[in-house]
Amino acid sequence: MSAPAAHLFQSQPNAARRSERATFWVFRAATYLVLACGLGVFGTIFFKGAGTVFKAEAPFINTTFFTEAPESLYIFEFEGKKHEMGDREFRAFKEKYPAAAKVKSESYVYSAGGIFPCIVGTVLLVIGSMTIALVLGVCAAIYLNEYARDGMFIRFVRLAILNLAGVPSIVFGLFGFGMFVISFGWHVSLLAGWFTLAFMVLPVVITASEESLKAVPKGFREGSLALGATKWQTIRLNVVPYALPGILTSSILGIARVAGETAPIMFTAAYVVRDKLPWDVDKAGDFFLQGVMALPYHIYVVSSKIPQNEYTERVQYGTAFVFLLVVALIAASSIILRNKLRSRYKW
């Protein structure tokens, strides 16, 4: 089927080559299909959610959505005009026009107002649980990488960490519920959520920290020890400072996980709805023992407990958009920082 070869090694189109190319195209298609799926999810939510979050006129951002609590949405016709109002606005409206009290209205819970308490709750959950996880995780990693010698005990610890990483998040939720909420009597509270989430990301933090500690060259330790530094001085002055940037960047991935998980906080920390903001407490101790609203749980609530229609869609997509954006930003910064760090620290 081809002209005679001009020389011995001239490349000839043949069946093997064609099938190779075809196979490569199949692999390529698989890769791009995955990307397309991811893009589809992002795209849909960004596109539809942007309508809630942004506005056409200044300040271009829907501030109500970010600064107010969720409310019920009322839709009714009054004097020939169609109105859509949040709960408070509707009550004020009724006072102004007493006749409106009698109109028939459709109402959808959580579909008006904003998601401010959820944002606050998520931020509090992330800060608390990451603090706990970082303290525990970094210390554990220091032990594993600096002090531990190979033996039964260490193998046991590593096995536990590996297995902990595979435990489903809902099981962490059950565990947190059984231990913190019931046994410790903390009820549904920030504290219970913090510990549950912290234990969940612990393997991530330990693994990340260990990797960063490993990246610190052995020479730093030997050099310091040979100068008569104690082990602790060596670790404190000559190891941890150089590992810290790596630990923190890798731990950002943990933040994404903590912020994104719903199952562990369902029964330990999250309320469907709560009127008070977290700092509205009588005494300081109550702060830790209160439940909060959280973004992921709010998405669960608005996507499963209220019907889907044009009125509820706004808050559903809007919340998902904000949440996805936050988590995506965290994850992206982690990936970018990690790549930067890898190229910067070459000892």
């Binding site: 060259p217 020479g219 730093f220 030997e222 050099g223 310091s224 040979a226 000559n238 150089y242 000892w347």
Partner: peptide, 9 residues
């Protein structure tokens, strides 16, 4: 003093 020079950063 070690084989590979190891000044601290």
């Amino acid at each position: 003093v070690f084989q590979k020079s190891n000044p601290f950063p």
